[in-house]
Amino acid sequence: MLRHSCLVLLALSTTTLAGCGGAASDTDRTERTRPAAVPSPTLHTASAPAPTVVEGRDGFLFFGADFDLSCGSGQTFDRDLEQLGEVASTIAASGREVVWTVAPDKSTALVDRLPETTPHDACFRDNQRWQEHLLGEVTEEHYVDSLALLRSADEAGEQVFWRGDSHWTSYGASLWLRELVERLDPTLAEQLVVTEGTAERTGDLYVEAGSNDVEEARSAAFATGATVEAVPDGPVFDPGRDEWGPLQWRSRPAEGLHPGRTLVIGDSFSYAAIDLTMPLFARGDFAWFQYFDDEELAAQVAAADTVVLEVSQRTLTHAQVAQEPFADAVEKALSD
């Protein structure tokens, strides 16, 4: 369903240069104890942004903004990660079910495929290791460590990211979704049938590099016996026309699926996995968060029974859902 991969790159690239500058340290925040083996994040002023596409090893291409944003945003990553966890805790305290994750950058999940020298080399690598450490140390009970899941599968020889795209393969996304279902609905998880195959794609990084190569990778799909259909007269959701009402669906028959109304708040990683996601939920909404204001998103949270929250690593430090105004809007919407 991810028909317009170039659009994802364009949407992200508007924030790239802002992420390259040095981030001021937060003097109001208590310094956390950092293990000696994990470098502290460093201040950095880039002389120029990384190339849009960075060539790595074994035919893997990487999104240049990963390197810019990692360097420029390292100083606030811990604060924003903690804030996102607090949003999840607030939703859970309201009686709703919630699961959340930070989808790791390809450049973090596949560090052994990076070139020997990366853009902003020392700054990128120090900040990347610090962010990796933080992602593995989250203690909020509704968090799923997607990085650990993807790393484990990669080490077992599975392809969890496209070589020519900045996103996970459907097989990679299925690892996060299987864990999500285990958390929300163990009975559904036991009955879930996973159908594996292969998929073809001309990835966003291939396109940006001027190539029309078609890549094949392992795929996964969930068979639940349900047919997915659009909610009649729902708001428009069409990335091709840049119209971003929530994507709304029903899965029928709903028996055995996760019940109630499920809201998936996410970005391009959630969108890349949306075809996998839909058959799991009896009634669903997907909101690509950067296209809604805080109050609109908070109102959708209040209307949901279950909330799935995904933010990609590269966007965490400028994602509204990891900022205090959104947390305040959610708290207000849930208390009204």
Rank of each mutant, 00 (worst) to 15 (best):
280 L>M: 08
252 R>D: 10
43 L>P: 02
159 Q>D: 13
21 G>I: 11
157 G>M: 01
270 S>Y: 02
284 G>R: 03
327 A>K: 15
97 E>S: 15
24 A>Q: 14
243 E>M: 08
141 E>A: 13
195 T>G: 11
15 T>P: 00
38 V>I: 15
286 F>M: 11
290 Q>N: 11
284 G>P: 07
59 G>C: 06
125 R>P: 02
39 P>L: 06
142 H>P: 00
248 Q>F: 00
153 A>H: 04
201 R>Q: 10
227 T>H: 09
248 Q>G: 01
93 A>N: 07
30 T>K: 10
31 E>T: 07
323 Q>W: 00
10 L>H: 11
88 A>D: 09
54 V>I: 13
77 F>P: 03
243 E>H: 02
219 S>Q: 12
125 R>A: 06
326 F>R: 04
210 G>T: 11
157 G>D: 03
189 A>V: 05
7 L>R: 13
290 Q>G: 02
179 E>Q: 14
125 R>W: 03
245 G>D: 08
119 P>Q: 12
186 P>G: 09
283 R>P: 00
35 P>F: 01
323 Q>V: 01
224 T>K: 01
278 M>H: 07
256 G>N: 04
181 V>F: 02
260 G>R: 06
178 R>H: 05
160 V>T: 12
140 E>V: 11
95 G>H: 09
72 G>D: 07
127 N>D: 15
195 T>A: 15
59 G>T: 06
93 A>C: 00
224 T>R: 01
291 Y>P: 00
40 S>E: 12
2 L>Q: 10
106 K>G: 09
97 E>A: 13
46 A>F: 04
102 V>N: 04
298 A>K: 03
242 D>T: 09
222 F>Q: 10
208 E>S: 13
212 N>I: 05
329 A>R: 05
196 E>L: 10
81 L>M: 08
171 Y>L: 14
267 D>C: 06
65 A>H: 04
229 E>T: 11
184 L>D: 12
300 Q>I: 01
324 E>V: 13
221 A>L: 07
238 D>N: 13
286 F>P: 02
116 E>T: 14
257 L>C: 04
326 F>V: 11
188 L>V: 08
114 L>D: 06
329 A>P: 07
207 V>M: 12
124 F>H: 11
170 S>C: 04
212 N>S: 15
284 G>M: 06
57 R>P: 02
155 E>C: 03
86 E>L: 14
212 N>L: 12
193 V>F: 02
140 E>Q: 14
